[in-house]
Design a protein around this nucleic acid. Structure first.
Lengths: 225, 225
DNA sequence: CGAACCTATTTCTTATACGTTATAAGACAT
DNA sequence: ATGTCTTATAACGTATAAGAAATAGGTTCG
């Protein structure tokens, strides 16, 4: 990955609520905590060595992320979404990130394009070298960066919200399938070319097809776990 | 509005956190609390007669709604979004609700279509009778219901999140402009016809055009506040 | 005169205690 | 024997208070 990621490398001291939120979000998104699991605030507080107050705040945030459902006086439960939701997830990602790509084509700067090209080259190197384990996370950065460029004020954050609101076990990543990786790399390259040409319509179409294809592959190849 | 709204008419006792959240969300979305305002938790707690604990939970939820921004040890600030965000907001709504309409065309039931037709008839009556003040809220139900029908498991909730994540002063509603109302009513009717025909492509196209047009009108007619 | 530092104040952040509600097991009446 | 009511328990919801961090104002040193 390029090193010019603008996020601060020295993170401010994390509050305990942020810490709890980060831990639980990662465990739920990676499906290490499976859907349907009941989350008891007191137990989480004991496990992470904090009181229940920051745990409650973390649970409220996860509820807004649609990763847990909350019922008054009953507790929190990790959401359990079926195949219908999976199809909607990829359909929504397609149109949202497609819009981001279309807008990005008209306002991307050479520096931003270089950053994406660098990231893409790193992915191509990893793919050629068989280092498939990093590709999923790098692809996430690729997609969300384009959405941020196309819609820095509003769209990018919503694209991130959509992207992070669906629990996907790591074993379900398209990028772990050696037969699929070349096609994905090629799709990314086509999108980059469209962005460089300033061809918003093509960028949108290619992004939509790319994400839809990922959804179809995910549907036909359920996670092994 | 039709009376067959499936939500329970007897609402469970609202928690204080829900109460605080509801009050603040309404005040921010209606722009009664303008963008850039600093929100102090203790002051809110005093004003609403609760302690800071439920206030903090409400603020965390509003942060996830992107109605406020939160900075550690500094406090919450009502978001202040510019014209760029406005354009992104309507663009995002267009593609998300367009996808909802496309999916809805293939799975809408006669009962659901009847409900929408009833709502539409009520809007047409109010429009003809000059009762423009209700149209904005009714239109919100119209759009979100279609999204819920098209994507009941996932898409509908995200459409709602997008719709509610942008502060729009009541004075900015398209539906208060008597010159625009007939066009909007006509657009809704065209969408309903496409849904009835099961023509997903047309429903998506019409919904996108409808929302985009609303965004353009909003851009050319800033709120009078 | 300006910049850096210290301190007082304000506000957020967390922990703890108490009240409230849901759930399930057991007793009682039918 | 079954259905309902009672009660015990466990979990959530809220208030309060103590602790931590950031900001502003004044002071001191260069």
């Amino acid at each position: 990955m390029p090193s010019s990621d603008p996020r601060p490398s020295v993170t401010p001291p994390m509050s305990k609520a942020d810490y709890v939120y980060g831990v639980l979000a990662e465990e739920i998104r990676s499906a290490r905590i499976p859907g349907g699991t009941a989350l008891r605030a007191a137990a989480i507080a004991r496990r992470l060595g904090v009181s229940v107050t920051p745990v409650r705040e973390a649970l409220r945030r996860l509820e807004k992320d649609r990763l847990i459902s909350y019922e008054a006086h009953h507790g929190a439960t990790v959401v359990d979404l079926g195949d219908d939701a999976l199809e909607e997830f990829y359909g929504l990602r397609a149109v949202v990130e497609g819009l981001g790509a279309r807008l990005a084509a008209t306002r991307i700067t050479p520096e931003e394009l270089d950053w994406l090209r660098e990231l893409h080259a790193a992915m191509a190197r990893d793919a050629a070298g068989g280092r498939l384990d990093r590709l999923g996370e790098q692809s996430r950065h690729f997609h969300l960066r384009i959405a941020d460029i196309g819609g820095p004020a509003f769209l990018g954050q919503h694209a991130r919200a959509v992207h992070d609101s669906f629990p996907v076990p790591a074993t379900a990543s398209l990028w772990l399938d050696p037969g699929q990786v070349p096609h994905q790399i090629e799709a990314h390259e086509g999108i980059l070319d469209a962005l460089e040409r300033g061809d918003g319509a093509a960028a949108e179409r290619l992004m939509i097809e790319h994400v839809r294809r990922a959804g179809e592959h995910r549907r036909d190849n359920p996670p092994t776990g």
